[in-house]
Design a protein around this nucleic acid. Structure first.
Lengths: 224, 224
DNA sequence: TTATTAATCAATAAATTAATTGAATAATTG
DNA sequence: CAATTATTCAATTAATTTATTGATTAATAA
């Protein structure tokens, strides 16, 4: 990198640095995880399938450009998203990719769409149906993420346990499942699985972080 | 890059690829130039200070991820932004950098702000003042970019010629200068220069591409 | 057909980035 | 104070990215 000269070049270098931090699949994965709530290095490393040292270095890259922040809590270093701007940036990135990259379109059509032929439920729709008590809200994320924050009245059954714990979903209930974000596979799989088991289920458009960022009510804890 | 396995990983790879295309100062520069309008390789190369071969390769990187499109016109290959999504993504990137990267803040305060102590004029403000005929709109971009599209009633005096052509700016006029975008240096410099010469001048918030994308009226030609 | 022009391609060297390993540090607990 | 735990640091290797150079292709004009 040659010494930046003009202020214009310096600015562009800074913008490029932010983009560079986003330019890695594992780091995007970490960002999605942190969007669920504050979490330690070991936690995200395990969830993302990275070694701890590797995750630590990726997190530092993200911190250096201000996309995430960290604080010490005893032995742990807890990382979290810097703020909701970052969610918007990620959403813009997804939107652009979705509209312009043929491969994304192929994946959406081929895999995601096939798993969920019906339209997802919008946030406003779900708010209405929750108010009228007409819906069972299902959070299919791992318990740590549920504990860090979830939709009010939601029940946490991680995807892996869905078959085993089907009895916790009232028969005949109208299920809306959600997870980490718009392309989080968990909710797709959950809806597919529930339908196969004869239940009525749909998917929430995008996930918990977007719900929270929209200023809708959120509950914490009840995860232990 | 290891073979992507899960659909989730594949999606993340695609998003990362888009971010990677943005992760280069020269490419961001090219995008800002193309945001002014369609342009050939040689044109953008010269404007960005790159060799033609280098610019060509960068443009192909951008095209591969769908951020720009190209068409042949005789001998030339004309590139342009894929669409206004891309402007939004760039804006989100700038916004995040502005809020989270200390160095950007430093540059904005130190260089850009110092050059323009007063608030910029908002688009809506300018629309109003144009309608009332109370303002001289000054486009300080190079003539090629002006020719490809500009604000109605605007006068094109490239920054470099501003001193020489000061007589074209009516004395006592209320000047609003604009250029390529929110951090385009040209308008900052123009406002500073005009004030030094005793004129009344302010800067339009962001630039021509944002004006056009907001659906406001645009003129073409008159550049030859 | 032969030049000419605009753009791309191919090959290279330098620089950066990514993941792994093992060592080092820092905060707590026994 | 020693041991434990969570994280970071440092060094390495492999892979990718960048800009440069010169050759090549494609479209037009002489």
């Amino acid at each position: 990198m040659p010494e930046p000269i003009s202020p214009k070049q310096s600015m562009l270098e800074q913008f490029a640095a932010v983009a560079k931090a986003l330019a890695s699949a594992p780091r995007l994965d970490l960002l999605e995880l942190l969007a669920q709530g504050e979490r330690g290095v070991e936690g995200v490393a395990a969830a993302a399938g990275l070694s701890v040292a590797n995750a630590s270095q990726h997190l530092q890259v993200l911190r250096r450009v201000g996309l995430v922040v960290s604080r010490k809590a005893g032995l742990q270093v807890l990382y979290s998203l810097a703020d909701d701007d970052v969610l918007e940036l990620l959403a813009a990135l997804r939107r652009t990719a979705e509209r312009h990259v043929a491969e994304v379109d192929r994946l959406v059509r081929g895999y995601f769409h096939e798993k969920d032929a019906l339209e997802p439920v919008s946030r406003q729709d779900l708010v209405r149906r929750m108010r009228d008590g007409l819906v069972t809200v299902l959070d299919v994320r791992p318990p740590e993420e549920y504990a860090a924050g979830h939709l009010p009245t939601s029940v946490n059954i991680p995807l892996k346990e869905l078959h085993r714990r089907l009895d916790e979903v009232p028969e005949g209930a109208d299920v809306v499942a959600y997870c980490r974000g718009p392309y989080c596979v968990l909710a797709f799989e959950a809806v597919a699985a529930l339908r196969q088991m004869g239940r009525t289920a749909r998917r929430l458009e995008d996930g918990f972080p977007e719900w929270r960022a929209a200023g809708l009510p959120v509950e914490k804890g009840t995860g232990a």
